[in-house]
Design a protein around this nucleic acid. Structure first.
Lengths: 153, 153
DNA sequence: CCGATTCACTTCAAGCTTAAAATATCTGTG
DNA sequence: CACAGATATTTTAAGCTTGAAGTGAATCGG
């Protein structure tokens, strides 16, 4: 590829990145605001609850950390708060005294169901400008980026 | 639109959102890591320096806050750190004793130029899986979402 | 069985982020 | 001019996030 074309491509990718970041920040901010004002909770807590709700089994702290791609210390703090709210609980793991497993309480599960319905509706509203066909195509393109990044880690 | 088709569309948008979030988090995390390990700085500081470098005039704290879409208090902290590093400086604004204007120092401007070159190369590398044509199309789609969101605020 | 290493988790320090309160200053109205 | 309200910024409290250090427990090679 000639040098000028390559430089132009580079600028296009940079613009795409800035737009991607701006859009996802805007959507994320809207979701955070609504979780806070309507349900007095946060996105990290929602994410942890979602991981727990999706799993048929209780999850160990380290497994939560791995699935959500956040540090162990981070999970400690979020689960502390979920526990203080009565939405999750820690239990000892039989056979490994180092480990703790986490599960939603009944109250936590009920609360999450409410949150999840609202969350899905919000996302639909916020991304309403995207059609099914566009969504499919963008997902394919993003997949290629994700696969690429996966290799780098 | 019939109810089933609508529900399916909703799920597709939710999946798109999750993928968008995952991809932009992955790219952002890679950029943060590199800024930290290679230049001992952070994305928020880079963003503030970029805003200052792009502007021909010094910017007031409130103008930085508006452009970067972050709170006033946030800008106070970031500029404090840039100032401590010798990369930026505050000056009184003639005619308004409440206001402060911020500008890059010579050192800050030189440092930013280095950062900006590396940053653009990193973005190109991380988003290398996207072609020019794909980039243009995704940007159009994201624009429609952004315009939509703009109206809501 | 013992010592070294790895593993699971928590704690800590530092930085980013926000909303809300606090300060100081400015501006328009009577 | 007085003063009410608007503006510019900083401070504060709370939460999220990370990397690194710390604690205790499991495991593995000898």
């Amino acid at each position: 590829m000639n040098v000028d074309v390559q430089a132009k491509m580079g600028k296009t990718r940079l613009r795409l990145w800035l737009k991607l970041l701006k859009t996802s920040n805007a959507v994320e901010t809207a979701l955070r605001d609504r979780l806070r004002t309507e349900f007095n909770t946060t996105l990290p807590r929602f994410d942890v609850m979602a991981a727990l709700a999706r799993s048929p089994e209780a999850l160990k702290m380290s497994e939560l950390s791995r699935r959500l791609r956040v540090s162990n210390g981070n999970v400690t703090g979020i689960v502390d708060r979920l526990e203080a709210e009565g939405h999750a609980e820690r239990h000892a793991v039989a056979g490994d005294r180092r480990a703790m497993e986490v599960r939603l309480t009944g109250k936590g599960r009920a609360h999450f169901n409410t949150l999840a319905v609202a969350h899905e509706a919000w996302v639909n509203e916020l991304m309403g400008a995207i059609t099914e066909a566009e969504a499919m195509r963008i997902m394919e393109d993003l997949d290629s980026v994700a696969r690429d990044l996966e290799g780098k880690r």
